[in-house]
Every structure is written in structure tokens, then in C-alpha cells.
Nucleic acid binder design. Structure first.
Lengths: 194, 194
DNA sequence: TATTTTTACTAACAAATGTTAGTTAATATC
DNA sequence: GATATTAACTAACATTTGTTAGTAAAAATA
């Protein structure tokens, strides 16, 4: 069924929905908008998906699962704390390049998840942030990092990588790899000469 | 009329709208939602505002005007480039603390501006970013900053300060002034020891 | 005090929303 | 080839949307 390369109608719907949610927001995108992009009537989509909520749910949790599993992987690798932070930054950028619209939706439209699932999502995010912050704190304790405020450091890094999607267009004078390099330099070395 | 301290009904509407737009998005907020918060019927608000679009327009451009006028002010002051960047970062954080919901709306919901005004807004933003980037480039040329990619540096700084509103709650173990200090340290000195 | 303006209300509108029902053609299974 | 399932369609639904019309009370102005 899903063994050949051709994507399911369901997958196409989820993909087109992500693009539209990114551009026009969850509330600003109608089921008829999505259907138009997929090439069928709005009602027909209900043969493949349960509801508009379910589309959002699927996009958000697919992305948060990726974040969390990558974090756990990196935590267990025998790397310096600097290298672990670098790996996480690279992961964010790569995911953004490969799966931009979905990442964007998970960052912006998660708040429109139905109340029951909203808790699960914010919990997942809190867990990710906690793990990330712990790596920073450990790096400070190990004397690898400057004694910055680890919460501020965490959100400075996360903000910088999360919203690359708002301004970065790959292949326009800057490749994804170059972006990785430059952003890591900026965040780990700082702007000013010393 | 507007000389005494009491805010106009119009101002109350704009303020409550900004809070709701921040929490539920522009499309997710109905005129009846706003009216409920203000304490009148939706139809009554049309004595004070022209349309829902006009509310968004007002919020977005009030904020972009502040950004631009502050940038122009700072550009003309006799400061080092490091000090100018510091002043801009402080300005972003202060505006966010004083006018959080409006800043949030200007950052997220500007894309729902009617097409005619959308151009003006993105143009204003482009102008601001260009001016900011020029300060970074000048700082590099003057040997004050490391030879980073100035576009990446610009958006790293802007992302870091723009989305503070997503995680920062003043008075919770960190004051606005401490936040300013820490974020400036992080962005200008970097995370790693050298 | 008389009159004009402001501000609130209720009622209603046309359009758009997510979704269901019922149906029919295409595809897979026996 | 007969039968069952999948996937598309049209039509319609109840709500919700932003907004206008008409009206009455309150406030400002003369």
C-alpha cells in the first residue's frame, strides 16, 4: 500500500494543508482551499481524513516527535557539549529545509489544537526545551561555555533557528550548509571581537 | 478629547483586539469576541472603528512606525557600532514589555493585511532590516565586529528579540533589565569560551 | 432649554465555514 | 464475472462570519 514511492492521497492532503496553513494560517485556510489545491471537492477529503483538527494534529505531532527523538539520540552520543549544541542547531536547520511548511505550522499554529491535545503538545515542547537547557547548563558546569543565563541562551538559540523559515530561501546566495556554519559561528562565538 | 488620561473607546477596542489577535490569531478572532471583551455589541464598535481590517492596520503600522523612528534616532547618535546594536536590542525588548500584544500582532498577523497595505508594511520592514544590517556591516568594516555574514547576524538578532514574547514573563525570576543584559551578552559574546 | 451629535442597541443580511448524507463510478477481492 | 470496498461527486445542513440599517437613549452644544 505505502511500499511504492507514490504518496497516499492522505499524505498529499496533509502536505498541501501544511503549505496553506503556513501561508494563510490555520483559521485563514478553509477545507475548500485545501481541496482546491489537492484537486478534489472539500467533502471528498473526508474519505481520507477525519477532520480539519486532525490535519493540524498530525502535522504538529509529527514534527514534535522528530525533535524529541533527535534530542534523545544526540544526548547519548559521546560528544562535547559544544558539539551537541552544534548538532541540534544543524538538526533544526535541516528539518526546516526538508519539511519547511510543517515545521512552520508546528511553530505557529499549534495553539489552535483542540484543548485535549494542546496539553500533550505543550508538554512535549516543554520536555524538549528542558533537555536542551540541560545540555547548556552542563556545558557551563563543565567550563566549556561562558556562565550565561541558560534560559536566555536556550531561547536565543531556539528563536534563531526556529524562525529561519521566515527569511531563508535556499539557493539564494546562501546554501543550507553555509547557513549552518554562519549561524553556529554567530551563536557560539558572538558578534563582537574580544 | 484625548487630553485627559482616560483612554478612548477606540483605544480600548484596539488594545483588546491586539490581545485577542495575539492569543487566537487574526482569523481566529471574531468581531463578537472583541466586542465581548470591550463590553459592547459587535455592531456598536463600528461607531469607533471602520472595519476589522482597519484594526489590524492600525496595530501593525503603529508598531512599525516606532521601530523605524527609533532606528533613525539611534543611527544619528554618536555611539560605537556595538553600542548602537545594544541600543536597538534594548529598544526591541522595552517595546515588547510595554506593548507586548501589539508587537506580537505586528510580527505574526501582518500577513493578513489587505493586499493594498501589505506592500507598505513589508516595505517598511525591509527598510528597517536594511538599516539594521547596514549598522552590522559598518561595525565589521570598522573592525569592531567579527567578519560574520551580516544577513545571518541580522536575523539571528532580530529573531532572538522578536520572539522573546513567546517565552518571557516579566517578574518571574528575570526582570526586563536582566533580560536585556543577558541577551546582549549572549548575542555579542557568544556561548562558547575562547 | 432646545437641538444636534455621539454611542449604544436589536435585527438582519449575504457569504463562508466545517461537516454529513446520499449516490455513483472505479477499483480490489472472491 | 459477481461482490464488496474505496473514493469521488452534488446537495445541503447549521453555524459563524463581517457588516449594514434603523432606532433610541445619552451627551455635548447652542
Amino acid at each position: 500500500m505505502t511500499k511504492n514511492g507514490k504518496p497516499t492521497k492522505r499524505q498529499i492532503i496533509l502536505e498541501e494543508a501544511a503549505k496553506l496553513f503556513k501561508d494563510k494560517g490555520y483559521g485563514g485556510t478553509s477545507m475548500r482551499d485545501i481541496a482546491g489545491q489537492v484537486g478534489m471537492e472539500a467533502a471528498s477529503m473526508y474519505n481520507h481524513i477525519k477532520s480539519k483538527d486532525e490535519i493540524l494534529d498530525n502535522i504538529c505531532f509529527r514534527i514534535s516527535d522528530v525533535y524529541i527523538s533527535h534530542l534523545q539520540e544526540i544526548e547519548q552520543q559521546p560528544l562535547s557539549f559544544g558539539e551537541k549544541i552544534r548538532a541540534l542547531i544543524r538538526m533544526h536547520i535541516q528539518l526546516m529545509v526538508e519539511d519547511g511548511p510543517a515545521v512552520s505550522v508546528a511553530n505557529h499554529d499549534w495553539k489552535y489544537l483542540p484543548a485535549a491535545r494542546l496539553n500533550d503538545f505543550t508538554e512535549a515542547r516543554r520536555r524538549y526545551e528542558k533537555g536542551f537547557a540541560a545540555l547548556i547548563a552542563a556545558g557551563i558546569a563543565a567550563g566549556e561555555f561562558q556562565p550565561v543565563n541558560s534560559t536566555v541562551a536556550l531561547f536565543t538559540i531556539l528563536s534563531s533557528v526556529r524562525w529561519i523559515e521566515l527569511w531563508f530561501k535556499p539557493g539564494r546566495s546562501l546554501s543550507a550548509e553555509e547557513l549552518e556554519e554562519h549561524i553556529i559561528t554567530m551563536l557560539l562565538n558572538g558578534l563582537e571581537k574580544k
